[in-house]
Every structure is written in C-alpha cells, then in structure tokens.
Simulated assay, not measured.
Amino acid sequence: MTRTVWIKADDSVGDWDTRRARITTALEAGADWVLVDEYDVARVRELGEINVAAFRTDGDVTVIDDAEEDEPNARPDAVVVGKDGEGDGTIDLPSDYSGSADLSTIRRESETDTGAYVRILAKEYEAFAEAAAVDADHTIVVGEDWAIIPLENLIARIGEETDLVAGVTSAEEAKTAFETLEIGSDAVLLDADDPDEIRRTVEVRDAAERETLDLQFAEVVEIERAGSGDRVCVDTGNLLEHDEGMLVGSMSRGLVFVHAETAESPYVASRPFRVNAGAVHAYVRTPDGGTKYLAELQSGDEVQVVDLEGHTREAIVGRVKIEKRPMFRVALETADGDRIETLLQNAETIKVATVEGRTAVTDLEAGDELRIYYEDTARHFGEAVEESIIEK
C-alpha cells in the first residue's frame, strides 16, 4: 500500500495568507495533496507542483468547468463533494440513514479523480461514508473528538474501490491512522498550521512505507586479492548516518552490508553521502525490494539505505563514479551452509559490519562474521521469481 499525506487548506482554516503558508510548507515537506476550495486551484499551481483536490460546493456548473479551456491551471486533480452539504452536517442526515449517497457530481463522467468528504458526527455518517465510497476515488472521513472505532469500522467495510483518507490534527494521530487494524488508512488529511507538525506527518508517512529487514551474519570463508575491476561509488543526494550503508553483492540472494564513508580517515576526508559499493556487476537493493546492477545506476535513481538494525529508507542517487581499482573477493557461508560472494575495493576506507563492529575490508580474515541480508530466492531483471538459478 502506498500511503499519502493530504494537507487541508480550504477557507475553513483561515485567510489566503494562512492557507498559503500551509500549502508552501506542504510543498517543501513533500506532502502529496492539498485540499482547497475551487477558486484557489490556480493560485496553488503558481506556488509549486503538488496534487490539488478542490471542494465543489455549488453544483454542476462551476469555476472548475468554466476554467477547463480558458485556465487549464485552475482544473484540479480531484473534485471533492460534501462540504456545505450532507457530508459535513450542513444538511442533516436522518438518524436511521442506511441508503445510498446521492453524489451526482461523483457519479457523472469526469476526467478528474473524485472524492467525498464526510465528517463522522454520528453513526449514520459512517453509513453515509460507506455509501459514498462506492463511487468516490477518495473517501475523506473526519472524526469529531473521535475514538479509533469509526476508522476501524470503515477500514473493515470499505474495500479497494476507494482510497480511505483519515482526518488528523497531528503526526501522532497520523501514525495511529496508518496502523489501525494493522492495515491502516490509505492516506491522512492533516488539519494543522504548525510547519513542524506537517513535516513530522510526512516523516510518519515515509516510515510507514519502509520495510524493516531481518539482517543476519555470515562467516568469511575466503578473502583474496582479485586483481583490478571497475568499481562503483554511489554518491547520494542524502547525508547518511554513521550506522547506515547499502546492501550489495554478487549473488542477489545474499547481499553484504557495506558502510557509508561517514568515518574520518588518515587518508581521506569522510564522505557521508557515499557508499563505495563494489564492482559493476554487483547487485544493490532498491526501495521497492528489488535489485539493480551497480553499473545501471544513474543520477535520479533511488537506492535503499539500511542501518545496522535493518531499518530502511530511500536515497536519491546524485552521481555514480566508476573507476578501475584493485579488488578483494570476499566469500561467505550463511548459517544454513549457502555460499555467497562479493567483490569490494581493496582500500582501508571501505568498511563492513562485523560482529566486532565496523571493520575495514583490508582487515578482514577468515572466520570473521559479516552482517548480510539473505533471502532464498532467485531474481529476474531485479524481481524475485520462483525458479531455479545457480549463481557461483
């Protein structure tokens, strides 16, 4: 599931200066959507590139339709109904409501995504949201002083026909929404002015997307000089922490943890954005759980960064440096007796993670144990496949 963060920036949050501040922070933080009134769509487009959802409150003939040819920038990516109507309680629902949602704007043919906005004011509004979800690409539900029960109910009842967007007022509430019933909402709609809260909510989204890997140790059975090869340095557009690195190796099923060059050295200054990853043929793990050859990487690609506990995040490749350098061949044996290998540059600055801690590849000896990621599966064009492949 891909999680997204929406930022509420319609006229209910304040004047244009207040709304613009929220939108600007959303752009800078990396939020996915802003939810505004239809007359603000063009102004949002002027501020930057972000998905724009717009409330429609005055029927089928709107600013949005009129602007399609004259002002294409005023057309939103999604049209949302429910404000100033049944969705937000402006028009009351009967307490015994159990029918369908009469959302004609959503049901009509449209090139844009459609959304329904529902405040969960009472039990009948849960039923209304469930009915609206049948036709809406996005179903936004906002609880009033809510316990988590209404969200649990809707997660359980609403299928994949809609993206469920939970209204929240803090990053902490966003985390809860993403974790509810171990499934979570597809997205959150944050209603908050605090720029730090907006940034923290985006960080919660990113954390919810990331996997945690089960790293293990494998024993070094051979280490030998292997002559010169074409070595790849991966320079990222991100600063890496001291306990972070990348997973690389000659066999896709067993990837070795190689530290980022965050440590100072008598020989060269630290390069906390760099991982000296090995030879051109080696695999490197990517954020989607796949692999790429190091030789294939180029500026703008994403690679997976992992720490010693297996927590992952993504990093953008800024530059790839391929140079001829002397290499070591490192062969390891896993706990179940499988043999994996990789080639690493023969240099003191290349560090791997052993049981004893951060160790230069030049200091490795047979019997040392290296931290690896192991999965007993073959790969075809970087994708895991169920077939027999021999790598040696």
Rank of each mutant, 00 (worst) to 15 (best):
R3I: 05
R3P: 06
W6V: 08
A9V: 09
D10W: 04
D11I: 07
R19C: 10
R19Y: 07
A21C: 09
T24N: 08
T25D: 11
G30R: 03
V34H: 05
V34R: 03
D37L: 11
E38G: 07
V41S: 05
R45V: 07
E46W: 07
E46Q: 14
G48W: 12
G48I: 09
V52N: 01
A53V: 10
A54M: 08
A54W: 05
D60F: 13
D60N: 13
D60T: 13
V63H: 11
D65Q: 15
A67V: 09
D70K: 10
N73R: 15
A74V: 12
R75M: 07
P76H: 09
D77V: 11
V79C: 06
K83W: 04
T90Q: 10
D92G: 15
P94H: 12
P94W: 09
S98G: 13
G99W: 06
S100H: 11
L103T: 00
T105S: 06
T105E: 08
R107Y: 07
E111Y: 12
D113V: 05
D113P: 03
G115T: 04
Y117G: 00
R119I: 05
E126M: 09
A127N: 06
E130G: 06
A131T: 01
D137K: 06
D137P: 08
D137Y: 13
E144A: 13
E144C: 10
A147S: 15
I149E: 10
E152F: 03
L154F: 04
I155D: 01
I155C: 00
R157P: 00
T162C: 04
D163Q: 12
V165H: 00
V168L: 14
A171I: 04
E172L: 10
E172S: 09
E173H: 06
L181N: 12
L181A: 13
S185C: 15
V188L: 08
A192V: 08
D194G: 05
E203Q: 15
R205Y: 04
E211C: 06
T212N: 13
D214F: 10
D214G: 12
F217E: 14
A218I: 11
G227Q: 12
S228V: 13
R231Y: 03
V232L: 08
V232Q: 03
V234E: 04
N238R: 12
N238D: 13
H242Y: 07
E244R: 02
G245V: 05
L247C: 04
S252F: 02
S265M: 08
V268F: 07
S270I: 03
R271V: 07
P272G: 02
R274T: 11
V275A: 03
A279P: 00
A279K: 03
T286D: 07
D288Y: 10
T291F: 02
L294Y: 02
A295C: 06
L297T: 03
V306A: 00
D307T: 06
L308N: 13
L308V: 15
E309L: 04
R313I: 07
E314S: 15
I316F: 05
R319Q: 14
I322G: 03
K324T: 14
K324C: 12
R325P: 02
R329C: 05
A331P: 00
D338A: 14
R339Y: 10
N346D: 14
E348P: 09
K351N: 12
A353E: 12
G357E: 14
R358P: 03
T359H: 09
T362F: 03
A366G: 12
D368I: 13
E369C: 12
A378G: 09
F381P: 02
F381M: 13
A384F: 00
V385Q: 14
I390Q: 09
I390G: 03
I390S: 08
E391A: 09
